[in-house]
Design a binder for these strands. Sequence first.
DNA 1: ATATTTGCATAATATTCTTAGGTATATGGG
DNA 2: CCCATATACCTAAGAATATTATGCAAATAT
Lengths: 112, 112
Amino acid sequence: MGANNLYKGSLTTIVLKLLEEKGRMYGYQITQEVKAISAGGVVITEGALYPMLHKLEGQGLLTVETEMVGNRMRKYYSITRNGKKEVVDRMAELEAFIRQMQTLLNPRIELA
Amino acid sequence: MGANNLYKGSLTTIVLKLLEEKGRMYGYQITQEVKAISAGGVVITEGALYPMLHKLEGQGLLTVETEMVGNRMRKYYSITRNGKKEVVDRMAELEAFIRQMQTLLNPRIELA
DNA sequence: ATATTTGCATAATATTCTTAGGTATATGGG
DNA sequence: CCCATATACCTAAGAATATTATGCAAATAT
């Protein structure tokens, strides 16, 4: 975990879930939205985000549309049907992770 | 996440916390204990565990004592004072992570 | 004018883990 | 006795995910 207090592997879940909720976002917007929602607690670095967006697109979990805003490019990402399936899986994994960690870390009675 | 349903970075927390609770364990014992507590849900691979134990020892978070049991070696690890401090930090980080994820992932009201 | 923000991107490196081996002793079942 | 499995340590190659450090360019604020 870096300054983000995030475990490696959780970023994909965040991005997919956000896109599922918001419908359509571009990269920079995602970084700002996550920062805002988390009150500055989670900062997505661009060096992690952009390669991941490309990867998710390559996997068919996202689609991309390029738009010009003024003279500048924006690449809007949307979640696909497969992406939505992936969100369900990832949310289940996250819940399982939290349960496992609680089981392992909560002070528990000595068993024999 | 692998078959473990664990995020990368969480293994250190598990090992340190377990050693804080149990006081003194050897590597193989840790793998078995974690498997037992999690009902088979979390399997620590030795390829991850042993290098990590060496690393934590190098960082002064663990100490090691080698013992012979019959004709076979066991390396018992104990947590140090600094290791206990690290546990406190890591537990706080985990709780922060869970809170952040809940904030980011829970369906929430659209804010303008 | 100039610095900051917006918006995209990649490359080098670090961390953490899986996979796939290797060595050797101990033990239980046939 | 033989052999599979369990115990107990270990490392090396590679994958996955992230940080850090850049680079480019347009827009906006000071």
